[in-house]
Design a binder for these strands. Structure first.
Lengths: 221, 221
DNA sequence: GCATTTTTTAACGTATACATTAAATCATAC
DNA sequence: GTATGATTTAATGTATACGTTAAAAAATGC
């Protein structure tokens, strides 16, 4: 089956993948022409993708220097986590206010179950995957589309850091208890508890990640 | 003196202005060719501007229909205010943590003074202008560049609603007291107070605006 | 008349061409 | 050998050309 998306869209996702995978390392420059050739298309869709990625904070366009892949410092990561913390906590509160049925919360429950299982099997990748699903669904349940967009852009950037820290950080056991408690609060329609627990959860993750990044001197991820 | 910016940048700001001024009304469609002609340039820079504005949530690109100017419903406005509330409050807290000197807070103080004066003279436009400056500076002092970007995009959208509600809503007298209290908390290095007061301030503004919009049935601003 | 198919149209997505101009290279003076 | 200025290079920003294809219009059948 053929890809029905436009080249512009393809370029956007492919460049994004190349940034996350490290094929385009942070701080590196890339001429539009080179990228166009690599992706097998003309400069036009590549340029359009570049503009989109710039709006998401992933790259900068420097005339005659090419696309600069934005590095992400420990301070950047702290800033990003701050935003995530506030917005996800709000989403948790709003989700609790919405009085979803248990059925509505099935995806959330599944993600928590998968995290538990992954932990038991020491499968950190599976855990990270389920953790992503949990947070994405949580935000979706918050019912604020703009907020979801912003959070997903921010989470994209976190993913870069996580790839490098996933295996050196402590096992996320506390994390799982937090998720369960947030789920519980949402199911019971308790916005304040949902908010506060998730807030503390994210703040904790932030401090852990930032201190890891600083310790390992990732001064431009 | 000539404008040194690229046509692409010019198109971005001009289209944005046209959206805010109502020259491109919410919900309306505009072909790339028409816009290009109106702006006196080719389709290329207009398209680039369109992509930037899409990333900011102002327009949508609908193949063969043209640029759709996104309408902003009361629900949208509530969502936007929710985001503003959380992020600005965080900025206020962080600003208080930063222990700025009184000199550093001069811009903030000036804005408050201007608001007081504008209120005394019943000059609502001047008040709105100073209010903008206050919030922008507050966020800047928070020291999170990404947060500032997001807030400024959200505030852009609020501006549309304010233009239509500024003269029908109650006079913002309470507002001024809030600003002063937030300023005080930041100057004294009290993050919690700064956060909580600003949070309440924004929540109040949100509820007032949303109920106004609903009452006046602006179901697509 | 209305529904369905065919034809036409034109807007977009993309490729390409090109002028501008910043950067790099080279030449020259000291 | 270094600094200054002239020359070359090449990447961008923009215009333009064009094929594709969705929508509109026209034609056809019932």
């Amino acid at each position: 089956m053929q890809d029905t998306r436009s080249n512009s869209e393809r370029a956007t996702t492919e460049l994004r993948e190349m940034i996350f995978s490290g094929a385009l390392p942070p701080g590196s420059d890339h001429l539009e022409t080179e990228l166009a050739e690599k992706l097998g298309m003309s400069r036009t869709p590549v340029r359009e993708a570049a503009l989109t990625l710039r709006a998401q904070g992933l790259v900068e366009l420097r005339p005659r220097r090419g696309l600069r892949i934005n590095p992400v410092s420990a301070k950047d990561m702290a800033d990003i986590y701050d935003i995530l913390t506030e917005l996800e906590s709000l989403a948790a509160a709003r989700a609790a206010e919405a009085r979803y049925s248990r059925a509505d919360l099935a995806t959330l429950a599944t993600a928590i179950g998968d995290m538990t299982e992954a932990l038991a099997q020491d499968d950190l990748r599976a855990w990270a995957n389920a953790d992503d699903r949990f947070h994405r669904e949580l935000v979706r349940l918050g019912g604020n589309a703009r907020l979801s967009m912003i959070v997903s852009v921010m989470r994209d950037q976190v993913r870069r850091a996580r790839a490098t820290t996933l295996f050196i950080r402590p096992k996320p056991t506390q994390s799982n208890d937090d998720h369960r408690a947030v789920y519980q609060a949402i199911a019971e329609g308790d916005p304040k508890t949902a908010h506060d627990i998730h807030h503390a959860h994210r703040l904790h993750a932030r401090d852990m990640l930032v201190s890891l990044l600083e310790k390992h001197q990732f001064h431009g991820l």
